[in-house]
Design a protein around this nucleic acid. Structure first.
Length: 562
RNA sequence: UGUCGGUUAGUGUAAUGGUAGCACCUUGGAUUCUGGUUCCAAUUGCGAGGGUUCGAGUCCUUCACCGACAGCCA
């Protein structure tokens, strides 16, 4: 997408291929498709594929279909179909009326298989799964022909029909293409087209007793839909000869398959199987847990569609296996939210401040800019009172050098409020500071002094009497290890889950305007980070998730000095 | 002892055979009513050898290393 208008992207290798295909006349249009299997939720890796397929269609004035690659009844469901559609729409893409299901083509696929049998190019095989594996040979040794390979066309036709009719046990027979058991490419060693599986399919119910395999189905569907460029991930590179064999043998229209490297991110896992494990083992609260790399999770974490699209465009496309820094994803979010998120003030770890020379019952409504990066964002009023809360981190009795915040005798600015100077403080029996007593300078209203007096520090604050209570959920990386997928002997990726990936702060105070926040609203909590209103919140107790912290150079210098 | 694909700063990604760039990260500095933003600057790179060429990241060649593939999953 070029909705930020400033992407200067050199052409990736896929677009270069498309240019060539268009120039040579191999194709006269561009038609892509995004073909998920509805057996899990979409993740950021799928977003890369979605942006690629829909993005290419848009760039070339073509179309992109959405197709459910549903050929395995055991794992698929309507819940996933709906979630997938919802996620893609949210990301900002539109398949218009072109939502297809591989399962809608089962009959057509069956007829094509019959045709293959009649051509003598497919046969019913009675070998068990184990035997098929044995006959297949190994990576370095050729396989050998199935004893059932030379059945007559008539017998194959009869057997295949009986498979369809449910006359055989699950797994007892398969239909196989007759290609070459000595091929160095294992995919060409008489691959299975159909297996007997008398399972209930989420769309076709119990109509089918046999189900087609991926290779057989995928290319055919691409062909039916008139796809020009079938873009898929690297692991299908070895399948391309088979993809082409099917279409060529049947004399069907042939799209061009192009493979690219899937996305990997540091500190996260990116396979549906592993994500399912996290959900099933309750390591997270669900597919939309804000720590999940799923689109639903990222959405709830506060990621915007624009930030994810931007990320996908910036990481580029290539055939090199690579791992992108999680920090890069965070950068893209900050980049977007800095321009779009309204600033508000919330105190996560409240410390009471009493301004001794401020009138007891006075409430002043101070003007505050909603977003300094966006002149159109407007302003709002924030109540200022004698008793306030500031961040506990913003006060120190005995501060180190270069500490610009509040400490005894020091003056700071309260953002959009007044300059205040610390005159005293109170501690409890343990020596913990419980209250800071300050004086304010009435001439600095709005946070500005006419006399040119400079203050080095500026703090955010919330009125003690007018502020509202909120719950804040601080999220961190789900895994401690940059590469949790790399495990040793006797290790599981779940061994590396970060026990502190969520910290719940239930006594935070925020300015009153936050009571109006709706789930999904993004904010910048001044000086702290970007937060998003969560669906768990109520009017009485809004809940906010931290999407990503602000860059914190002070924290950095501090940790360096330790 | 197989087939296919790959190798450019820490990370990701560019470069009709013609000065190896960009972004993130990191580090300095300037600006700032957010220790944010913005701006400036710096460090760090063509897997190795040989060849062709006036000139090679790019072409040829040898080698090394990495990844995928032996589901009736996709």
């Amino acid at each position: 997408m070029s909705d930020t208008g400033n992407e200067i992207q050199s052409k990736d290798f896929i677009r270069t291929i498309i240019d060539e295909d268009l120039a040579s006349g191999r194709y006269d249009k561009v038609h892509t498709r995004f073909p998920p299997e509805p057996n899990g939720y979409l993740h950021i890796g799928h977003a890369k594929a979605i942006c690629l397929n829909f993005g290419i269609a848009k760039d070339y004035n073509g179309m992109c279909n959405l197709r459910m690659d549903d050929t395995n009844p055991a794992k698929e469901s309507m819940e996933y179909v709906e979630a997938i559609k919802d996620n893609i729409r949210w990301l900002g893409f539109d398949w218009e009326d072109r939502l297809y299901f591989a399962s809608d083509n089962y009959e057509k696929l069956y007829e094509l298989a019959v045709k293959l049998i009649k051509m003598g190019k497919a046969f019913v095989c009675d070998l068990t799964a184990d035997q098929i594996r044995e006959y297949r040979g190994t990576l370095t040794e050729p396989g050998k022909n199935s004893p059932f390979r030379e059945r007559t066309v008539e017998e194959n036709l009869d057997l295949f029909e009986k498979m369809r009719n449910g006359e055989f046990e699950d797994g007892s027979r398969v239909l196989r293409a007759k290609i070459d058991m000595t091929s160095p490419n294992l995919n060409m060693r008489d691959p299975v087209l159909y297996r007997v599986l008398r399972a209930n399919h989420y769309r076709t119910g119990d109509k089918w007793k046999i189900y087609p395999m991926y290779d057989w189905t995928h290319g055919s569907c691409d062909s039916f839909e008139g796809i020009t460029h079938s873009i898929c991930t690297l692991e299908f590179e070895d399948h391309r000869p088979l993809y082409e064999w099917f279409l060529q043998t049947l004399g069907l229209y042939m799209p061009r398959q192009v493979e690219f490297a899937r996305l990997n991110l540091t500190y996260t896992v990116m396979s549906k199987r592993k994500l399912l494990t996290l959900v099933n083992e309750k390591a997270v609260t669900g597919w939309d847990d804000p720590r999940m790399p799923t689109l639903s999770g990222l959405r709830r974490r506060g990621f915007t569609p624009a930030s994810i699209r931007d990320f996908c465009s910036r990481i580029g496309v290539s055939k090199v296996n690579s791992v992108v820094d999680y920090a890069f994803l965070e950068f893209c979010l900050r980049e977007d939210l800095n321009k779009t998120a309204n600033r508000v003030m919330a105190v996560l770890d409240p410390l009471k401040v009493v301004i001794e020379n401020y009138p007891d019952d006075l409430v002043e409504y101070m003007d505050a800019e909603n977003n300094p990066e966006d002149p159109n964002a407007g302003t709002r009023k924030i109540p200022f009172t004698k008793e306030l809360f500031i961040e506990r981190d913003d006060f120190m009795i005995d501060p180190p050098k270069k500490y610009f915040r509040l400490s005894p005798g020091k003056e700071i600015r309260l953002k959009n409020g007044y300059y205040i100077k610390c005159v005293d403080y109170k501690t409890d029996a343990d020596g913990k500071v419980v209250e800071v007593i300050c004086s304010y300078d009435p001439a600095t209203k709005g946070g500005w002094s006419e006399d040119g007096r400079m203050v080095k520090g500026t703090s955010h604050w919330v009125s003690a009497s007018k502020g509202i209570k909120i719950e804040v959920r601080l999220y961190d990386k789900l895994f401690l290890k940059p590469d949790p997928e790399v495990v040793g002997e006797n290790e599981r990726f779940t061994d590396f889950i970060n026990p502190d990936s969520i910290k719940i702060l239930s006594d935070c105070i925020a300015e009153p305007s936050l009571a109006e926040a709706k789930a999904g609203d993004n904010f910048q909590f001044l000086r702290q980070g970007y937060f998003v209103a969560d669906k768990d919140g109520t009017k009485e107790k809004p809940v906010f998730n931290r999407s990503v912290g602000l860059k914190d150079s002070w924290a950095k210098t501090q940790s360096k000095n330790q």
